[in-house]
Every structure is written in structure tokens, then in C-alpha cells.
């Protein structure tokens, strides 16, 4: 739609474009800077020569990061966590959302069940009671402690149940007349019809499990069981040098790295998968964002 601009419109338009370009740069340049540092020689970095382009290009920092045995262990824990978490989360989301999407006439207790789940978004046991529950159920220090406590993502359940509700009822009614049961209706009608929604929720679930770091930090007793995000938290934020320090043998192998270039490389590795998938996450339900505005 074309709207005529009043006098001064050109000025406003130019300023607006400029402002939005600067805003976009403010979101991207810090990341570009980190990448540039990670790909530069440490001498150039400590001399403050690196801005948004690598100086004396080298991949030694990345080489160093991925050749740490801890890195591979942590990566494998994360992959296991993502695989288990994604399957369990998606399965339970569908199994819970479908009955809840029924009307009271079809499933009398649906409102009661719905409140049973939604209540957990409003009120929590909190850190210590949850920690103790994980401990007493014997899943401490295993990948299950990262997957089972959040097995039912209530937020996604609500998204999917609202999506299910907006699908035409006639399809299911026709299937029931033809003798289809409840399970058939879910797997053969509702799931195929909501593939785009399910794909979006799946991507968010993967990002969520990839990013989660706190549960690994508190539920894992040994550092070898940390998922990648928790491992990165200890090396990037806590700067636990025992885990990332350059040993005597490595000094000769990696002449171009410093603590700062290593940290940058680790940071970049930690966000790489997200940089690759996030453009596909834009098609999100507005309702979901409104709901997500309450953080707890």
C-alpha cells in the first residue's frame, strides 16, 4: 500500500532507515567481533587490532577447542540429551494436547486436567525441592536428570492444544463415523494436519535443550557428564582454567592462541547450531509469544 508522505517525510525516512540499520548492526556486530577474534592470531588480538575482520587468520583456536577430549564428551552428552529430550517432549506434548483440545462434551474432565497442567506454570516447588526430588528419584548424574523433570513442556502443550482446536471438527467426525478410534484420529488426522506447528515446536525444543545449562550444572556430579552448555558455562564464565588451560605440550602446537581467542572460539561453537536454525523459527505463533511474556 502506498501512502503519500508529507513534507519532511524524506528526512524521516532516511533517519528511520539509518536508525534501523544501526539497530541491526548492534545485534549482529558483537557476534561478528567474537568470530573475528576467534579466527585471529593472539598477538593481533592482544594488540587490539581485531574489530570485525580476522587479523592474521588462523583456525588454531577452533582446532584447540575441538581437540579437547572434554569437548567431545560434552558434545555427546548434549546430543544424547537433545535426542531423548526431543522425542519425549514431542510425544508427551501430543499425547497431552490432544485430549485437552476436546470439548467438555467429548471429554468431561478436560478442564480439570487442563488446570492440573497450567497450575504448574503458575506455581513452582522452586530450586531446592526440585533438586531434592531429582535426587530422591535416583536420576542424579545421568542424562535423565536433564530430560525427565521437564518431560511435559506445558507451554508447548497449550500452544498445540489451541492449534488442534482450530482444525475443522468435521474431519474427525467423519473418521469416527468410519469407525476410527481416538488413537487413529490423533495419529492419522491431527498429527499430519499440524506438521508445520509440530516442526516449529520441535525446533524450539531442540534450541531449548541445546541452550539449557543450569540443570547440567546442578544435577551432574562429575564434569565428564556435563552437557556442552554447562561445560561452556564453566570454561567461559567461571573461567575454570583447570579445564581449558593450555598445557606445556600444547604451547608448542598452538602458538597463535590465547585465553581470549579460545574463549571466543568456544562461544562461537556454542552458538553455531542456533545461528543455522534460528531463521526458521520466525514463523512462530503470536499467541505463543504473548504467553511467553511471563517468564516463570
Amino acid at each position: 500500500m502506498k501512502r503519500p508522505f508529507a513534507l519532511g517525510g524524506t528526512l524521516f525516512r532516511t533517519a528511520n532507515h539509518l536508525f534501523l540499520v544501526l539497530l541491526s548492526l548492534a545485534c549482529v556486530l558483537p557476534i561478528v567481533h567474537v568470530l573475528a577474534v576467534s579466527l585471529s592470531a593472539q598477538t593481533a588480538v592482544s594488540a587490539g587490532e581485531v574489530l570485525f575482520r580476522p587479523v592474521d587468520f588462523t583456525v588454531q583456536s577452533f582446532d584447540f577447542v575441538v581437540h579437547k577430549p572434554e569437548f567431545f564428551v560434552a558434545m555427546s552428552v548434549t546430543l544424547k540429551r537433545v535426542a531423548l529430550g526431543l522425542s519425549l517432549n514431542m510425544l508427551l506434548t501430543m499425547l497431552v494436547a490432544y485430549p485437552l483440545s476436546k470439548r467438555v462434551g467429548q471429554f468431561k474432565l478436560r478442564t480439570g486436567y487442563a488446570w492440573f497442567f497450567v497450575a504448574t506454570m503458575l506455581f513452582h516447588g522452586g530450586l531446592i525441592p526440585t533438586f531434592l526430588t531429582v535426587k530422591y528419584t535416583g536420576i542424579m548424574d545421568s542424562v535423565w536428570s536433564l530430560v525427565l523433570p521437564g518431560a511435559v513442556p506445558v507451554f508447548n502443550v497449550v500452544l498445540l492444544l489451541n492449534f488442534f482446536r482450530n482444525l475443522p471438527h468435521a474431519l474427525e467426525e467423519a473418521a469416527i463415523v468410519d469407525g476410527a478410534g481416538v488413537w487413529t484420529c490423533l495419529w492419522r488426522i491431527y498429527v499430519p494436519l499440524s506438521l508445520p506447528a509440530l516442526a516449529t515446536i520441535s525446533l524450539f525444543t531442540v534450541v531449548g535443550h541445546w541452550n539449557a545449562w543450569f540443570d547440567g550444572l546442578i544435577y551432574m556430579n562429575s564434569l565428564n557428564h556435563y552437557p556442552l552448555s554447562s561445560y561452556l558455562q564453566t570454561v567461559i564464565i567461571q573461567q575454570d582454567l583447570s579445564r581449558s588451560a593450555v598445557t606445556q605440550d600444547e604451547i608448542e602446537l598452538y602458538m597463535n592462541v590465547s585465553a581470549k581467542t579460545i574463549k571466543s572460539a568456544q562461544t562461537f561453537v556454542g552458538m553455531l547450531p542456533i545461528l543455522l536454525v534460528y531463521p526458521f523459527l520466525q514463523r512462530y505463533f503470536v499467541k505463543g509469544i504473548v504467553m511467553g511474556s511471563v517468564k516463570e
Binding site: 504448574t120 506455581f123 513452582h124 516447588g125 522452586g126 531446592i128 525441592p129 526440585t130 531434592l132 526430588t133 531429582v134 525427565l148 523433570p149 521437564g150 518431560a151
Partner: peptide, 8 residues
């Protein structure tokens, strides 16, 4: 994992 912690 949600109600037992509440009781906790």
C-alpha cells in the same frame, strides 16, 4: 516432577 516438589 512438579507436584512432588510443591509438596517438598
Amino acid at each position: 516432577y512438579s507436584y512432588v516438589p510443591m509438596a517438598g
